[in-house]
Simulated scan of single mutants.
Amino acid sequence: MAGSHFCLSVRNVDGVRYRRAGLLIRQTRRRRAFRMGGAFAPSAGQETRPPVMALSAELRMAKERRMCIPARKMKPAVSPSTSSLRVTHVNYKSLAELNAHCWPRRRLKEFELILAVRGEFEFINHETGERVEQHAGDILVIHPGELHTYRLLSSAEHAFFSCIHCMMTPRVPLDQCPPRLTHWETEHAMGELFRRADDLRRTNGLGSGKLLAGVVRLIWLYLQEPPRPPADARLTTMLNYLEAHLHEHPSRLDLAQRFRMTPQRINAIFKHELGMSPGAYVLRALAGRAYALMRDDQLSVKETAHRLGFANPFHFSRVFKKIYGHPPSEI
C-alpha cells in the first residue's frame, strides 16, 4: 500500500513539472510564431504536451537561455574546531630551573596559553594598559600581535607554570577566543592536559604530533566553556573542607558529622552536582595531587604515599592505577 502511494506521488509531481514546462514551451512557440507573422494554434484533438524526450531537451535549452550568473559562494565561518592548529612550543617546569623570570615587551605571532600551577604572575599589555594578575589555577590567554610583558611576582623557589604556543590557520576572530583569564580548580583535569601536552612534545612517535594538536584543541574548547560553579552552596563548603583535609581521607560519614546532614543527603548532593560519590571524588583528588608531587616535586612513590596519608605504598599504588590506568612507578 505504501509503495502504490509513493508511485502516485511521483506521477503527480512529474505531472505538475511537465505541465509547467509545457506552458513555458508553448509560450516560447507563440512568441516565435508572432515574430514570424504566423500564429500558433493547435488543431482539435492534438496533444499539446510534447513527448518526454523532447520536453527535456527544450526545457534544458530554455533554462540555458535564461541562465543567470551563479551566486557567489560564501566563505565558511572560521571557528577553532575547523581551523588548522599547529603547536610550536610546550613547557612544564619550575621557575627555579629558568634563568629568566621576566619576559619584557615581546610580541608573539601565535597564541600563548599559560597555566599557573604555583606562584603569582602578572601580564601587562603595553598598547591598551591592561594589567592582569595570575594566581595558582588560572589560565592566561595571550593573543598574537599583543605587545606585552609577562613576569613572576612571587618567589621563584616554589613557582611552577606551563605554557603552550599554538598557531591557527586561518586566524580565529577575537570574539571566538577564550577569555583572558580563566580559573580552574587545581585538581581538575586541565592540569593533566598541560602535562600530557608536555609529554607528547618529548615523544617522537608517528602520531605524537596529531595527538599533541588534539590535546591543545581540547584545552582550547575547555577554555571556551569554563566549568559552571556548583549550584549548591553547601557543596562549595564541603569541597573546601576536603581540599584542606585531603591527607586525612575524609569519608561520607565524616562529612555528615561535620555539616550535620545524613550520609544519604551528602551522597545525593555529590551525585547531582559532580556525578560521583564523595569517596570517588576524594580518590581522584588524591591521585591528582600525587601525580603533581611525583612529577613536579620529584618525590618517590614511598614519599608521596606517606605525605598523602596512605597506610603503605601498595595501597597507594592500587588507588593510583585505578584512576590513571598505570602504576605510579611509570611516571
Rank of each mutant, 00 (worst) to 15 (best):
C177N: 01
S162D: 12
R151M: 11
F160N: 06
T149G: 13
I164E: 01
R171M: 12
F160Y: 15
T169V: 08
R151S: 13
Y150I: 13
L153N: 10
A159M: 08
S154A: 12
L152V: 12
S155W: 00
S155H: 05
L174T: 00
H158D: 07
E157R: 04
F160W: 11
Y150L: 13
C163E: 12
C163V: 13
P170K: 07
T169C: 03
L152H: 11
L153W: 07
F160Q: 08
V172T: 04
M168D: 06
F161A: 13
L174R: 02
M167L: 14
D175G: 00
L153Y: 07
P170G: 06
T149M: 11
R151W: 06
H148T: 03
L152F: 11
V172D: 01
R171A: 15
S162R: 05
F161S: 14
C166G: 11
T149I: 12
L153V: 15
P173E: 02
F161E: 06
S154H: 08
L153K: 15
M167V: 04
Y150T: 12
H148K: 06
E157A: 06
R151D: 06
F161N: 11
H148C: 02
T149Q: 13
P170C: 10
R171S: 13
F161D: 08
H165N: 14
R171C: 09
Q176C: 09
M168A: 15
R171V: 13
V172P: 02
I164A: 01
E157M: 03
P178N: 03
C163R: 13
C163W: 14
H148I: 02
M168S: 14
S155P: 00
A159Y: 07
V172N: 03
H148D: 00
M168E: 13
Q176R: 13
C177W: 02
Y150G: 04
L153H: 08
H158T: 10
R171Q: 11
L174W: 00
C177P: 01
V172S: 02
C166H: 14
M167G: 07
C177D: 05
L174V: 01
P170D: 05
C166E: 07
Y150F: 15
I164C: 02
I164N: 01
C177Q: 07
T169D: 09
S162F: 04
T149H: 11
F161M: 14
Y150H: 10
I164T: 06
P170Q: 06
L153R: 15
C177L: 07
D175I: 02
A159P: 10
P173I: 05
L153A: 07
M168V: 06
C166W: 05
S162P: 08
A159K: 07
E157Y: 03
S155R: 06
P170R: 07
A156D: 10
T169W: 02
C166A: 15
S154M: 10
H158P: 02
Q176S: 10
M168T: 11
S154P: 09
C163K: 11
H148A: 01
L152G: 10
Q176F: 06
C163Q: 10
R151I: 04
H158M: 06
D175P: 00
S155Y: 00
P178Y: 03
T149R: 10
L174A: 10
R171I: 12
L153T: 12
I164D: 01
M168K: 05
Q176K: 12
H158C: 05
